[in-house]
Nucleic acid binder design. Structure first.
Lengths: 116, 116
DNA sequence: CTAGACTGATCCGGTCCCGAAACGGATAAG
DNA sequence: CTTATCCGTTTCGGGACCGGATCAGTCTAG
């Protein structure tokens, strides 16, 4: 079963969700930060700085900084790869899981209210 | 007919779209800028700085600056309200319409490819 | 053991955005 | 006319982020 979403509905959905996240208090993530967060949680590990930089087509410092802020928010954490200590593995956190679950519900609900 | 979108599908959809916009070249809009753009195009006019600030729950200077950059990108334009010259009316542009149409297609296509 | 390759982090100069406060122009009230 | 109010913009100091270059630490090939 495939999901049918017409362009005009897509815009309305996006508006509802973006408007809600802008109005909400708390950390508002940049597109890059959100892209990293979603990639780490939806794509099979391992996730490294270099890999993420390549995947998002942005520079390594950009990834490092995004991991700093996402780590500070406790949405993600870093861990040295003991097998190859040059690598840093990006891992999930409980808080990050909750954040994304809530966000998923927000989008899902907005989709349900689409044409009333 | 209502749109059914389960939370896990919502996340996948968001990842596809955000990842694509991050990878793409060109202007990457902040959430606020996108929220303004969508509001102006999807909500009946008139749209004023004060009204947008109230709607998004952000300060007026934030709206002014966002309009500066969106105007520079030609996605939106300002117009003095001749009836009350204190007001600034925010209006659509051709380029903005095209931008949102393309974006809507991007989301719509991503939704169609959800569970293949 | 050493030279080179590779990883993520840091430094650097610069750009963009933030909200509070102050500002000038336009309108409304006295 | 004068004062008060409303509107959007600008100013201000400060914070976040940008990519290129560089760095220290780690691994690997000769």
């Amino acid at each position: 079963m495939t999901v049918e979403l017409k362009p005009v509905q897509a815009l309305a959905l996006w508006q509802n969700v973006v408007l809600e996240t802008v109005r909400r208090e708390g950390p508002d993530l940049s597109s890059r930060q959100l892209a990293i967060l979603l990639t780490v949680y939806l794509t099979p590990p391992p996730h490294t700085v270099r890999g993420l930089a390549l995947s998002l087509k942005v520079s390594k410092p950009a990834i490092t900084r995004a991991l700093d802020t996402l780590g500070q928010l406790d949405l993600l954490k870093r861990k040295r790869d003991e097998a190859d200590r040059r690598n840093v593995l990006v891992q999930r956190t409980v808080k990050g899981s909750i954040f994304l679950r809530d966000f998923a519900d927000l989008v899902s609900d907005a989709a349900g209210r689409l044409d009333a």
